[in-house]
Design a protein around this nucleic acid. Sequence first.
RNA 1: UCCCCUGUAGCUCAGCUGGCAGAGCAAGUGGCUGUUAACCACUGGGUCCGUGGUUCAAAUCCGCGCGGGGGAGCCA
Length: 462
Amino acid sequence: MKDIKSILQEQAVGSTLTVKGWVRTKRDTKNAIFLELNDGSCFGNLQCVFDVSNLSDQNKAALERLGTGASAAVTGTLVASPAAGQPVEVSAQSAEVIGEAPVDTYPLQKKAHSLEFLREIAHLRPRTNTFGAVARVRNQMSYAVHSFFQERGFNYVHTPIITASDCEGAGEMFQVTTLDMDAIAKAGKAVDYSKDFFGKPSFLSVSGQLNVETYCMALSKVYTFGPTFRAENSNTTRHLAEFWMIEPEFAFAELEDNMALAEDFLKYLLGWALDKCADDLDFFDKRIQKGLISMLDSVRNSKFVHMTYTDAIKQLEANKDTFEFKPYWGCDLQTEHERFLSETVVKGPLIVTDYPKEIKAFYMRLNEDGKTVRAMDVLVPRIGEIIGGSEREYRHDVLLNRIRELGLDEAAYWWYLDLRRFGTAPHSGFGLGFERLMRYVTGMENIRDVIPFPRAVKQAEF
RNA sequence: UCCCCUGUAGCUCAGCUGGCAGAGCAAGUGGCUGUUAACCACUGGGUCCGUGGUUCAAAUCCGCGCGGGGGAGCCA
């Protein structure tokens, strides 16, 4: 059985076929009944036309039960459509009800629904135009991520999801335990972690970076692409408690190589979407964000602007009256600063580098000035920070100093420091939040609408 | 965690300084038409989020609680 995507592509007029899918809409006229089926294989529906004057009782009964949302099988002949709107359609001989969707209880109607409402029925929302398109683009973007790195000789490394090391240091963590918390609470005793599964407190990983660096120091070019967990109490359109992150890491590479890789990567992904998801992007362009396609296309053909943090601060200070938070050298860039830089100053993507060491992670390579580190953030209009990365500190003594300066537990980093004791080498990498990429590519505003089952504060239904 | 907005029909919302609950869409019925966000007419459809208070009278005003949305911080 062919899917609707193939049928619409091949347009094999004259062929007999059976299509199975879900009814999107049904329209009655005196002489004909129009049934549009969608099977998710592509954005478009296949219109099936029934001749009323020539309808068996059985087919008539079936069509009466086929309302929006029902699943059906239709058999007929593919013909050129006499009316505008679709090149081909099925001249149908028979309809079969596979599963009904009673109209008085099925939540999706033949009308537009708000994204907020659809979020409450996350099990049914993939059947809408918007979420079907999001799902197909998400699939293509996953494929593109692997394609990009595989073409360049990067090895996909599976880093652990559970970690018992407390040195990841990137935000609040979810604790994992097999201890009986109810019993412990009832007994009023202190928790004895030596009795826990791993013999010590363990958590869901907030980043695969530290682990993937170990494979970077053996395979040279590696990347991770997996789920990441942050227990931060943040309630925004750009944060999730469970999200997917891509983290490439490559050896004998400095910040400039890192910037080039990040730029190539983003352009590759946007280009892939434009080439492989044209129908879905067309929908997003029309209904979700006007001008999306031309924006993506211009980014694909642009050159990312490079700017040091120090220069960025100068730009911001020259416009300081426009900000709620006054910029100064040493301050962390606020969302309003990042958006001003990308949306107003450069009007496109830019890479800001060489941040003060105080506002960046301990593992970033210290510059000669002793004040800044070889960090880079890729900032894009509307989204803000989409990529964060750096050249890593590969000098053992300098890294150890940083760990001590910051009062971190030196012993916990023993294996990370070992990488610098044995055959150390310059290396660099970055993290891309997959859902932030999805927001950028689809134009969808809320990050909860670009992941099938969003997990956020007080939100783990489905 | 902080700030702002919001909760009324299946969905999206209107309902003003308190005075009999409304529209569009969806649905049902009929009509019309190779229809395509179909069209036209009629019909049915309500715990006005919950709770306590003010009042002759609360969807409307006030307190508390719960849900939803947006912004900030944190970050990807």
